[in-house]
Structures are given as structure tokens and as C-alpha cells.
């Protein structure tokens, strides 16, 4: 079975984002970027399925600027086989990303698509579910365990009350949650090998997808600042304070 893994280039999760003074967005100039952590988990899961012999080929896709190629290279170094970069400098919304991915699925015919549950920049948590709907496929969103069960895929999902397990007919879309696996670090030899793996460059127009945004950003602002309060000396002082403000 072939697996498609979309990977997104985002701000490094260890960097604190700053809002631009003009309110037009978040300042990403000279900011360290990385693969979205949930996408790393998606790549890792695909690689593990390949190691188990369930998966034969892993195709990585990124939709974004030329530098998104670096993100694909990281995934190739982790064990992906080849990449597709859909290059664009516009910020592509999840709906358009899902439409492009649907066209790639049509061409590549994978048995499974594994996406991250959310990208840590826009926090939309939409793309995988949208893709599943556009394809008419079932989905296992927020997965913490994935296993083949005969012809079906069994997915355990992290839900508000605990865990839920569903059985999906294939092809299907899975979106990853944090506990699915711990992604490996790419080793130096694998990083070197990944340089030789093929990456095809395309444009959204090649897929006939209109990526014009449906949403316009009116402004991006700093959230309300919360001031540090006071230090309390001991438990008695804490209890007294909490009583004085009616919190207990």
C-alpha cells in the first residue's frame, strides 16, 4: 500500500511568535522554521508501517514556498521515499490544501493519507477531515494508535472523554495526535541519502485548484496580557489570599 503524508513548514514550536506591529500577521522574518510536530508524527507512523511491511511507498507532499522543500527533505531523511512540492507564495487555506491533496490522491492512488491533526501556527485542525470528505473516504482523526485489522484499519482516537476506537474501510485518512508515536531524529547518513531522493515541483495551477483565500485577515493582535501577580510566603498565606478574593 502506498501512503501519502502531507507535511507543513511552520514556526519552530520552541520559538515564541511575535505579532507584527502593523497588525497584519505574525512576524516570520528570520524565524526558525521546522516541520509541524504533528506532521513528524505522521511521517514516523508511515515509516513504521513500512518497516512492518504494510506500506510499500511513502510520498511526502508540502504546499508552500520554495523553502518547504527543506521540510520534505526532513521527511525523506526520516524514511520517506519521494516528495512533491506544490510551490506557492500565497498562504493556502486548509480547504484549498485539501483540494490540492485530493487531486494528488487521484493521481497517486494511495491506500492511506496520514496528516497531522493540526498545524501549530494556524491551529485550524481541518485539513485531514476536509480531504476525507472531498474524497468520500472515512477518517480516523486524532489517532493515538493505528493497526491493520484484516482489510480494515483500526484507529484509536483521543476524544474528550478518553479513547474511542473505530474501524475504517480503506482507503482512508488518519490524522495524528501526540501519543501516536515518538518521531525519530534523522541520522546524518540518512540526511545525506535524502538529498538524492526525488522531489517533484508543481504549482496549484497544475492541479486546477483555485487557491484564492476565502478568509481575509482583518487584523492580528496580541492577546490580552496577563500580569504576574505576587509571591506568597507559605501555604497559610496562599489560603488567606484565596479566601480574600473569594476563590475558595
Amino acid at each position: 500500500m502506498k501512503v501519502l503524508v502531507p507535511v507543513k513548514r511552520v514556526i519552530d514550536p520552541n520559538v515564541r511568535p511575535r505579532v507584527k506591529a502593523d497588525g497584519s500577521g505574525v512576524d516570520l522574518a528570520n524565524i526558525k522554521m521546522a516541520m509541524n510536530p504533528f506532521c513528524e508524527i505522521a511521517v514516523e507512523e508511515a515509516v513504521r508501517m513500512k518497516e512492518k511491511g504494510v506500506v510499500t511507498e511513502i510520498v511526502l507532499v508540502s504546499i508552500g514556498p520554495a523553502q518547504a522543500q527543506e521540510t520534505i527533505r526532513i521527511g525523506l531523511a526520516m524514511g520517506g521515499d519521494r516528495g512533491i512540492l506544490v510551490q506557492t507564495d500565497v498562504a493556502v487555506e486548509p480547504l484549498a490544501v485539501a483540494k490540492i491533496l485530493a487531486k494528488i490522491v487521484e493521481a497517486e492512488q494511495p491506500g492511506l493519507v496520514i496528516t497531522g491533526k493540526q498545524a501549530i501556527d494556524d491551529d485550524a485542525n481541518q485539513t485531514g477531515q476536509m480531504l476525507a470528505a472531498l474524497l468520500g473516504w472515512p477518517q480516523g482523526a486524532f489517532a493515538s494508535a493505528v493497526a491493520m485489522d484484516g482489510e480494515k484499519l483500526k484507529v484509536t482516537r483521543e476524544v474528550d472523554g478518553g479513547l474511542q476506537t473505530v474501524s475504517l474501510s480503506l482507503p482512508a485518512v488518519v490524522t495524528t495526535d501526540l501519543r501516536l508515536n515518538e518521531p525519530r531524529f534523522a541520522s546524518l547518513p540518512n540526511i545525506m541519502k535524502a538529498k538524492k531522493k526525488p522531489i517533484e515541483t508543481k504549482s496549484p495551477a497544475d492541479y486546477g485548484v483555485d487557491v484564492t483565500p476565502r478568509l481575509t485577515v482583518v487584523k492580528v493582535a496580541e492577546p490580552k496580557k496577563r500580569e504576574a501577580g505576587e509571591k506568597v510566603a507559605d501555604v497559610d498565606a496562599l489560603i488567606a489570599k484565596l479566601k480574600s478574593v473569594g476563590a475558595i
Binding site: 511568535p17 505574525v26 491551529d123 492580528v220 492577546p223
Partner: peptide, 16 residues
Amino acid sequence: RPIYAGNAIMTVKSAD
């Protein structure tokens, strides 16, 4: 809506 782990609040207008 909050974005970037709540480090920014985005005001968006939908054309849909």
C-alpha cells in the same frame, strides 16, 4: 480566533 497557541488573536472575515 486565537492562532499560534494563543500568542496572537486573528480577526478574520469570511467571503463564503
